[in-house]
Design a protein around this nucleic acid. Structure first.
Length: 439
RNA sequence: GCCCUGGUAGUAUAGUCCGGUCUAGUAUAGGCGGCUGUCGCCCGCCCGACCCGGGUUCAAAUCCCGGCCAGGGCGCCA
């Protein structure tokens, strides 16, 4: 089918801005066809744009031949432009309709569509992700990403106001940053290279001089995970602060989370309504529970974990029932944390590392970092890592590395908390996981 | 990677346990026709599917084996 040109048509109003006081005025609306109801002599076309919907009413016999012909050839999901007169009416829920003078078909859609955009026939997440662009025509899918935008905007503002400057560290790196998580390898002009799993070492180096930095960006983990809360590519929100300890950065973290919850609750009414979800703005400070306390609580629930071991997921689920909102777990055993986490001076078995939990999900983790080069080398060896492969990182410790602390929060996990979504793939536009590389 | 469950029209489902009644039911989308105030419009007709390969059996959507894919869980983590 021939499609029309946009020509000199420009939107005069979003659908939501067309109100009864515009009665008799001409407007241009642009968007997609959500629904068509044809009663024979009269045809109702529901046009939807970013902000809402409006009814276009075509009356056979009254409308021009061209308009009727155009209206007859429409199918759902076509993108169209309509120039017409606003008419006040009691017969639509919005109290107005548009009587078109001209309809331009700007983009056609192939039918049958791979999923029902109106949501009457629900589609599974796999089907939706295969046709993600079409899925994003669904209000509920788009609402998630409007929430994400507000969350990001709030975080950037908050961190900037608090003296953090935004930085970008490399995604392509020469060696493992933390050990542990598997890395994706990359052919870098014939040299072995990897996709970064975290900005950890770089952000630490940057506190020399910048003192307070933050980074928001994607990182990569080549884990064969198959869960609702893991991705191969995820967005990490990282901070690092000089002359600070874990207690200082925990305050920054809880305040940030509080601010984000508040901003989303206040600014995203409509989206939260679409998502049928309510955000309870958490009170700060959050509970601070030591690893030892957690172990004792679990013991009471009949789960015993030997001191020093990591807490398995089913145990976290139990904890989530006891602590249904945000809480910190502090004083983790040194051996269960990454090599750069500072052991306590009074008891080196215990570290200054912490996790921020939301119910049973680990949202963020952080801690005071080791700033003594000798101790760092010792810890690297204890974790079975080669100090040689951290040569460039260790050199930064020759230039007056200050005491410092920081954390990283998983943006998608935070977004699950903000939207009530149970599968992390729902809060990523084009998720990457063990078995999904397209679209 | 391991464990569990599943795979039926474009989409979402019934049927699978207990093989034959399935020429595979329903809804929605799509096509055709009718309808001048719908708003999940309505009414009639039509199109369209048993994941792939092998096996058991007179007979397989249904039972068995292998593969692929999906969902959930575990480990690991953000």
């Amino acid at each position: 089918m021939e499609i029309d040109q946009l020509g000199d048509w420009r939107r005069t109003h979003y659908t939501i801005e067309v109100k009864p006081d515009l009665n008799g005025k001409d407007v241009v609306v642009l968007g997609w066809i959500r629904d068509i109801r044809d009663l024979g002599g009269i045809r109702f076309v529901i046009l939807e744009d970013r902000e809402g919907t409006i009814q276009i009413t075509v009356i056979r016999g009254k409308s021009s031949k061209e308009v009727v012909e155009r209206a007859d050839s429409l199918l759902t999901q076509y993108s169209i432009g309509v120039k017409g007169t606003v008419k006040k009416t009691k017969m639509t829920p919005r109290g107005i309709e548009i009587i078109p003078h001209e309809i331009r078909i700007l983009g056609v859609a192939e039918h049958p569509l791979p999923l029902d955009v109106t949501g009457r026939t629900p589609a599974e997440i796999d089907t939706r992700l295969n046709a993600r662009v079409l899925d994003l025509r669904r209000d509920e899918s788009r609402a998630v990403f409007r929430v994400e935008h507000v969350a990001l905007e709030t975080m950037r503002t908050f961190l900037s106001e608090n003296g953090f400057i935004e930085v970008h560290t490399p995604r392509i790196i020469a060696s493992a940053t933390e050990g542990g998580a598997a890395l994706f390898s990359v052919d870098y002009f014939g040299q072995a290279a990897f996709l970064a799993q975290s900005p950890q070492l770089y952000k630490e180096q940057l506190v020399v001089g910048f003192e307070k930095v933050f980074e928001i960006g994607p990182f990569f983990r080549a884990e064969e995970s198959h869960t609702r809360r893991h991705l191969s590519e995820f967005i990490s929100v990282d901070i690092e602060e000089a002359f600070a300890t874990s207690t200082d950065v925990m305050k920054v973290l809880e305040e940030l989370v509080h601010r984000v919850c508040k901003a989303v609750a206040e600014k995203c009414h409509r989206d939260l309504e679409i998502l049928k979800y309510k955000i309870v703005v958490p009170e700060i400070p959050f509970k601070r529970l030591s690893y030892d306390t957690i172990l004792k609580e679990l013991e009471k629930d009949g789960i015993s974990i030997p001191w020093g071991e990591d807490i398995p997921t089913p145990a976290f689920r139990t904890l989530g029932e006891t602590h249904p909102y945000f809480y910190f777990i502090t004083d983790w055993p040194t051996k269960s944390k990454a090599f750069y986490i500072n052991p306590r001076t009074d008891n080196p078995e215990v570290s200054e590392g912490f996790d921020l939990m939301w119910q049973w999900v680990e949202l963020a983790s952080g801690g005071t970092r080791i700033h003594s080069k000798n101790l760092l080398i010792k810890r690297l060896k204890e974790q079975g890592l080669q100090p040689k492969s951290f040569q460039f990182h260790l050199e930064a410790f020759n230039y007056g590395m200050p005491p410092h602390a920081g954390w990283a929060i998983g943006l998608e996990r935070l977004l699950m908390m903000l939207t009530g979504k149970k599968n992390i793939r729902d809060v990523v536009l084009f998720p990457r996981d063990r078995s999904r590389l397209t679209p």
